[in-house]
Design a protein around this nucleic acid. Sequence first.
DNA 1: CCCAAGACCTGGCGGC
DNA 2: TGCCGCCAGGTCTTGG
Length: 276
Amino acid sequence: MPELPEVETTRRGIEPHLQGRRISRVVVRHPMLRWPIPADLPQLLSGQRIEQIERRGKYLLLPFREAGRAQGTLLLHLGMSGSLRIVAAGSAAAKHDHLDIEVDSGQALRLHDPRRFGAALWQPGAAGEHELLADLGPEPLTEAFDGRYLWERARGRSAPVKTFLMDSHIVVGVGNIYANEALFSAGIRPDRAAGRIALARYERLVDEIKRVLARSIKQGGTTLRDFVGGDGKPGYFQQQLLVYGRGGEPCRQCGAVLIDVRIGQRSTVYCPHCQR
DNA sequence: CCCAAGACCTGGCGGC
DNA sequence: TGCCGCCAGGTCTTGG
């Protein structure tokens, strides 16, 4: 369940176990993810010291430096079904445990991904140079992401605003759940053409995106312990969703029946009364 | 350039 | 219980 808050929660959960540790061994069990895990990844990583874990959109980044210079970066993406856990190095692997990165504490970072839409890639130098990251939009929780930016990017666009929002080249980290939720909170119909929404409404929308993401990250803190402990419960933010997964049920705001449609091949729920 | 649809892959669920 | 179709948190690629 990797939306941005989940990825950020994962980052916070694993970083304390890995920071300052030296990689002792890398085990690749199934290299065919979205792209193949590079065959030389074990050699590239072995002996490296992990300094920190960064996040860009839904990517987790482990940059490695040598004498202060960026030497290379491990890129991890969880796709639709990926998760990362801290486990004891060498512990029995389950089905779909594709990659272990063992460190000198006796622990290991384990990538589990049934659908294999995730990725583990190596980028020489800084991660930003990787073509998958080079053209990403701004982080949603920064000041660079504001109503005017979104409004400007939307000029002349006829695609539904929901599809527009979920395009990582426009803004990173807004997945299907939070696109639905933020549009509801902002009172905007998801099928409205992105280019036909006023600046003021985009300002409201940006506020709601930031609010819902921040709130979810905050609650991820609770999920976090389960995550690292290996329990991996479904996100507990789920209980607070206003529209996602609630098609046919009453709107929590006005009681109208929530509409369930598909936009851009993704399930979309909205309130026909509250959202215009 | 923009947009919609297809593609990747496995597992869980409801219906028959 | 078994089989079938549909659905799922992402996003790159393709074709118009």
